[in-house]
Design a protein around this nucleic acid. Sequence first.
DNA 1: CTCGCTGACGCAATCGTTTGCGTACCCTTA
DNA 2: TAAGGGTACGCAAACGATTGCGTCAGCGAG
Lengths: 331, 331
Amino acid sequence: MVTMRDVAELAGVSITTVSHVINKTRPVATDTVGRVLAAVETTGYTGDAIARSLVTGGTRSIGLALPLTGDPQLTALLRAVDAELTAAGHTLILADTHDEADREGAAVRALRSRRVDGVLLTPTTGAPEAVLPELRKAGVPTVLVGRMPEHTGFDQVGPENVQATSDLVRHLGELGHRRIALITGPDGVSTAAERALGYRLGLGRAKLVWDAELVASGPSQDAAEALETLLALSAPPTAVVAGDNPALIGVLRAARRRGLRIGSDLALVAHEDVDWAELVDPAVTATAQPVEEIGRAAVRMLLERIANPDGPPRTVRLAPTLMHRQSCGCP
Amino acid sequence: MVTMRDVAELAGVSITTVSHVINKTRPVATDTVGRVLAAVETTGYTGDAIARSLVTGGTRSIGLALPLTGDPQLTALLRAVDAELTAAGHTLILADTHDEADREGAAVRALRSRRVDGVLLTPTTGAPEAVLPELRKAGVPTVLVGRMPEHTGFDQVGPENVQATSDLVRHLGELGHRRIALITGPDGVSTAAERALGYRLGLGRAKLVWDAELVASGPSQDAAEALETLLALSAPPTAVVAGDNPALIGVLRAARRRGLRIGSDLALVAHEDVDWAELVDPAVTATAQPVEEIGRAAVRMLLERIANPDGPPRTVRLAPTLMHRQSCGCP
DNA sequence: CTCGCTGACGCAATCGTTTGCGTACCCTTA
DNA sequence: TAAGGGTACGCAAACGATTGCGTCAGCGAG
């Protein structure tokens, strides 16, 4: 490898000077700068982040720990996070939590031993969050992304769920639906809980009563099955809210299998807009989550937290935008 | 931070011994081991990958540089790469190339300065690959993923394109189509080129002639437009091969806009299977790219290359599997 | 002529590990 | 009792940067 010493010798100066030239950290005579820069060029010197980190303490890298699921939005989030991060001169270390507590713990520990300057974390669904206290105790600057448990003293960024779902439900109510079902992801995820809350609020605003029969939550592969169950009720729903992407797919699949016409036979609105929303018939009405904004905001908050470790934790909720199409029954 | 010195003092031994206990790198008396481990436990010592790397030279981290596009398969690739990597005790550093040569260069340089043990790279489409020689000169173990330029002396892993596309075309030919169009991504990408080649081969095997009019390639957003142009021909195609995901979406969009019935009015087959392939009507026939296998193979090849830097470069092509559905016109 | 100042640069300590040599001790054996 | 061979551990030199102090030359002022 080509070290600073090599550059220094070639330029005929000390490594101190090379360091100062590269980091512009103290004035150096112009021609010396020239010689050093030339030496850097000919040697192809890249610098050594490892050695630098050892002495400065920081690594200019942050860790992103989340479940690498099939969520179609994930790429957009990664892109936003990476962009914001590299713009700030940091690099991104990725770790899959698999949405399991122990894997999450391992992921975070790996990041910590890599000495990341901060961590972006989408916590697992399991309630016994052992990793959060650990991060707090270790004093690792952390921002929670997407899912937002309550009363953690951490910074948090995520979508606004309550209002969004409420609006969705109210819209269905305004279209005359009286039996509106909700199919969400597994319990325990704050997102699902918030959407369930929004659902109830929306029902209230539409002057409808909440009926436990109409709410299905659980592992995603059961969404199709859940719909079957709902339709078998004595008073089946005439509209359904798909709380996440797998739920949407499950509903569409089940509807198709039963020859149900979405929009007329069964109204459908979904969270998580997808790029193929307009390619199915009818096009599905959905809320587009502001993932890119969430990613950017998370990075900015983390960088601020790193710069200023103390100071009150902040929570940011970004509103989704409604992509109003036809699956809700509107023409 | 809690260092090895802290652990050593608490355990009443030298840091040498602590190091040896932790790394199991030389025999240590059993009770000493116990004291050290206990000290590690109470201090919460995590080790410092930075300092370790400085002396050992390796970082046990590898860089993944690729365009963070909207490719729905990307998440699957990431998951596979991460899984294989963490299983081997490495961590993943992600860098977006934006599919632009200079961004790619910056990404790779960032990875290099972070001293990654190796690089997984999906090279940009631009021909003037300045980054490959740089990697070669620097002796960075590298595996090219997905796209496979020719005559680079690098290890490569990617999908098999020629045969796959050829089979797709032949299938259409067997269904009686005589005018088969191809819509691919931008030129210059080896993947697109290979699929174009497979297209020609398939035509030959179906005893059809190649017609320049029937081939459209270019930036993805033009796929819909490209289809319009094709349909306006005096002898329009009766079948179309969508060479990538954006092309598929474009074709579906355009067909829908024109009220064209896929399957009967226009047969359609696509590369890149998607999770919503069965949700559109008719379900789209597509080749499912073996992304997970590609990811795993890439990591394994890279780790082998790191262990054994010399040795001939290898190229691995993994065959996609055909998901035969109805959009090709089959019942 | 000397003092002080300024601009330009180098010395050497430091960061937290790993690891090649040593050393100290104990136990056997002759 | 001394030689020889283990066993158990510590010393100190790297690794490649950053950075607080120094040093040194040149120059204008008193």
